[in-house]
């Protein structure tokens, strides 16, 4: 647990109630949690905080999740950042598209909280 304390996690979603649960879950695991309600906010935080892991919704107003993912993966400073798509788009094609853009993980909504937490923890171990 202690090891993860200084790992920064950014959660990007436009649904406040989803943010509510994700924030709770990540904080409980001891991550340093940042929150963005749309793509533009996400850009700011990514540039400022360089989070190690980003939980990313796809469908959002203004800038969508794909754009954010591309930004992270194309930028030399941030390309090591892990991107986890959390999306209601759950068709095969959507998942494939997510990975092709550079996502490290794609979890369809609705998700199992235990499963999610397990996977994020594994990822955090890699990041260190």
């Amino acid at each position: 647990m202690n090891i993860q304390k200084n790992i920064k996690v950014l959660i990007v979603d436009d649904e406040p109630n989803i943010l509510l649960s994700l924030e709770f879950l990540m904080k409980k695991e001891g991550f340093i949690v940042f929150i963005a309600r749309d793509g533009e906010e996400a850009f700011d935080i990514i540039k400022r905080e360089h989070p190690k892991i980003v939980l990313l919704d796809i469908m959002m107003p203004k800038v969508d999740g794909y754009e954010v993912c591309k930004f992270i993966k194309q930028n030399t400073e941030t390309k090591e950042t892990k991107v986890v798509f959390l999306s209601a788009k759950s068709k095969e094609v959507d998942i494939e598209k997510g990975y092709s853009i550079g996502a490290d993980l794609y979890i369809p909504k609705p998700f199992s909280t235990r499963d999610l937490v397990k996977k994020i923890n594994l990822m955090a171990a890699e990041v260190i």
């Binding site: 109630n17 989803i18 509510l20 469908m59 209601a88 998700f111």
Partner: peptide
């Protein structure tokens, strides 16, 4: 259809996640 599914999934996600949190904590 895909829009509707998406729209249904969003509240469903919250409900499921929050219920699980309540159950586990």
């Amino acid at each position: 259809l895909s829009t509707v599914t998406h729209e249904i999934r969003t509240p469903l996600t919250s409900i499921k996640a929050l219920s699980e949190i309540l159950y586990d904590n």
